[in-house]
Computed example of a mutant assay.
Amino acid sequence: MTLLEVKNLKKIYTTRFGGNQVQALTDVSFSIEEGEYVAIMGESGSGKTTLLNILAALDKPTSGEVLLEGNNIVLINEKEISAFRRQNLGFVFQDFNLLDTFSLQDNIFLPLVLSGKAYQEMNSRLQPLAEKLRIKDILTKYPYEVSGGQKQRAAVARALITNPKLVLADEPTGALDSRSSDDLLQIFSQINQEGQTILMVTHSTKAASHASRVLFIKDGVVFHQIYKGSLSTEEMYQKISDTLNIIATGGARNE
Rank of each mutant, 00 (worst) to 15 (best):
L75P: 03
S31T: 13
T173V: 08
Y142L: 14
Q94D: 02
I138L: 09
N107R: 12
E34M: 15
L215Y: 10
G195N: 09
Q186E: 07
I198V: 12
N20L: 12
E43T: 12
R253Q: 04
L67E: 07
Q23N: 08
K132Y: 01
I217N: 01
M200P: 03
G19Q: 09
Q120F: 08
G35I: 13
T15G: 01
K11L: 08
E69P: 09
L55A: 01
S44K: 10
E171G: 03
Y144R: 15
G42M: 06
D27N: 15
P143S: 07
L133Q: 00
A175M: 15
L184K: 13
E131W: 12
D170K: 15
A118R: 14
D170I: 15
L58D: 00
L3H: 04
L51G: 00
L185M: 12
L9Q: 04
L4H: 06
Q238R: 15
F188L: 11
T140K: 15
E69T: 10
Q152K: 11
T15F: 01
A118Y: 00
I73E: 02
V74L: 05
T26Y: 11
N72I: 14
K136N: 03
F223V: 04
F188D: 00
L52V: 08
A24P: 13
L231S: 05
A83C: 04
V167R: 04
N163E: 03
N72R: 15
S212C: 11
A130R: 13
A208H: 14
Q238S: 05
A207N: 08
N88Q: 01
V221C: 07
N163R: 14
G149S: 09
E171A: 06
V221E: 06
A211T: 10
S180K: 13
M122P: 06
F30A: 05
A83Y: 11
T15K: 14
I54P: 02
L244I: 12
Q238H: 11
S82N: 13
G47C: 09
R213W: 07
S180G: 06
L199I: 12
N88F: 03
R16E: 05
I240H: 04
T233R: 15
P172W: 05
Y144P: 05
N245W: 14
S204G: 06
N192A: 07
V167F: 04
L129P: 06
Y37L: 13
N123F: 09
P61N: 04
S31Y: 13
K79Y: 03
Y227L: 14
H203S: 01
E194I: 11
V22C: 08
L168A: 02
R213M: 02
R158Q: 07
G90F: 11
K218G: 00
A118Q: 10
D100M: 10
F84W: 14
N97Q: 13
K79S: 01
I187W: 02
I187M: 02
Y144D: 04
D170A: 12
R16H: 05
F84S: 02
G220T: 14
L112F: 02
R85Q: 00
K206T: 08
N192F: 10
L99H: 04
L184F: 12
I198G: 00
R85V: 03
G148M: 03
G251A: 07
R134V: 00
Q190K: 15
V92P: 01
N72W: 13
S124R: 15
L176N: 03
M1K: 11
I247V: 05
A248V: 06
K206Q: 09
P61H: 06
A155N: 06
K117V: 06
I246R: 15
